[in-house]
Design a protein around this nucleic acid. Structure first.
Lengths: 99, 99
DNA sequence: AAAAGCACTTTGTAATACAAAGTATGTGAA
DNA sequence: TTCACATACTTTGTATTACAAAGTGCTTTT
């Protein structure tokens, strides 16, 4: 038998970062506020995880407007897609092992 | 859209505990040492996570012998199977969402 | 002019994770 | 019989992480 948890990405051990990534896999972009409500987190906490994901090159930020209100949105990067897919694959392999 | 990370069990956010559980889903029992080598962790760290899993009622401990050498093995409980299955289901649902 | 919203940053604290060292018990070798 | 070694921990100390709450700067709404 081999180590079932190799290939898991440490960045995605955290559930909020995991949540952000899986949302961004299926949504072209999402706003800060929508993300905050969806994941049910405080804004400070969310902001920290978003910075982390951005610094790791997994997401990118777009500062825009809705009318004249600021509206920040986030989207996934190529590298983010790749790294998250790899993580999902590792999870699936682990799950396959237990079934 | 709904929160993709609801249903995930916080105990299984940690990769070592996740690893222990997935090993115990497919092995009737495993010894402390085998687990340590398989998951590539220090014994102190592993022991801590095993205590955590035991206190949560997910695994049980059997202190036995091989010949006259002590041999501690671990196995999953009914509740552990249930909780871990639920976690896997939650993961699968999350993954389904991103595919 | 005041209050409120957005998207943060800063601050402080609590929880978590981990390595390393120490411990108790027993075994095998010299 | 004494010494080194193994098992399965526990203890200790530290580093990392996560989080809430409060503060900030800007803008918009009332």
């Amino acid at each position: 038998m081999k180590n079932p948890i190799t290939g898991l990405n440490k960045i995605f051990d955290n559930r909020i970062r995991l949540g952000v990534m899986s949302v961004l896999m299926v949504n072209e972009e999402i706003s800060f506020n929508d993300l905050k409500q969806l994941l049910e987190v405080t804004d400070g906490n969310l902001a920290t995880h978003l910075v982390n994901l951005e610094e790791n090159g997994f997401i990118k930020v777009h500062k825009g407007f809705i009318g004249r209100k600021t509206n920040t949105t986030y989207s996934i990067t190529r590298q983010g897609e790749k790294s998250f897919s790899d993580h999902i694959t590792a999870l699936e392999n682990m799950i396959k092992g237990v079934k």
